[in-house]
C-alpha cells in the first residue's frame, strides 16, 4: 500500500480524529486523539494487508508552549512484512497526563511506557506495573520536562561561561 492509500483507509475509518498528516523525510506521520490510540494500533495490527505488528519505539515529548497539548506520546510502528513505518502522535494537556496503555497489544510497551512515565510523568492507564525504571524511586519530579534544567542551577562551577557558551 502506498502512503496515500493508507491515509485514505485510515481517514475513512477515523474521519477527523486523524489529522496533521505529513511525511517528514519519507515517514508517514499522523496525529490522533488519545481515545482512539489503542483502537488505531489494534486496527493496524489486525489490518489484512498492512499487518503493522511491530512496535519499534515509544517515547514522550514535552512542548510547554502548546497550551492544552503540552505532553505527547510518539509511537513508531513498523510492518515487517510490507516494510512500512508509521509515526503516530498523541497530545494531551499537562494537567491531565493520562493515556491508555499499549501493553495489552505489545509486551515491549511495558518498559517503554515505564520509561516515558519516569521521564515525563505520563500516566499509562491500565499498565500492570507503572513505576520508575531508570531513576530512583524517591525522585519527586519528571526530569525530561522542559522546565527542569540540566544541572543544579545553584552550582557556580557549571555556569555556561566556563564552557565558552
Amino acid at each position: 500500500m502506498t502512503h496515500q492509500e493508507i491515509i485514505e483507509d485510515l481517514t475513512g475509518r477515523y474521519g477527523d480524529s486523524i489529522f496533521d498528516i505529513h511525511e517528514p523525510y519519507g515517514l508517514l506521520t499522523l496525529t490522533t486523539k488519545r481515545e482512539n490510540i489503542i483502537d488505531l494500533l489494534q486496527y493496524l495490527y489486525n489490518h489484512k494487508t498492512l499487518q503493522i505488528q511491530f512496535l519499534t519505539d515509544l517515547c514522550g515529548i514535552h512542548y510547554p508552549d502548546n497550551i492544552g497539548n503540552e505532553l505527547g506520546v510518539i509511537y513508531h510502528v513498523h510492518s515487517l512484512i510490507n516494510n512500512i513505518r508509521i509515526r503516530i502522535k498523541v497530545f494531551f494537556p499537562l494537567t491531565d497526563p493520562e493515556i491508555p496503555t499499549a501493553t495489552g497489544l505489545y509486551a515491549t510497551a511495558n518498559w517503554m511506557e515505564r520509561e516515558t512515565y519516569d521521564f515525563f510523568g505520563i500516566i499509562f492507564k491500565g499498565h500492570p506495573n507503572l513505576k520508575r525504571i531508570l531513576n530512583v524511586d524517591e525522585m519527586d519530579y519528571f526530569p525530561m520536562r522542559k522546565e527542569y534544567p540540566l544541572e543544579d542551577q545553584t552550582r557556580r562551577d557549571k555556569q555556561d561561561f566556563h564552557f565558552g557558551r
Binding site: 525504571i133 531508570l134 531513576n135 526530569p143 540540566l150
Partner: peptide
C-alpha cells in the same frame, strides 16, 4: 535497571 543511567537524552 538504571544503575549507570547518565541522562543522555537530557
Amino acid at each position: 535497571i538504571g544503575y549507570i543511567h547518565r541522562a543522555f537524552e537530557k
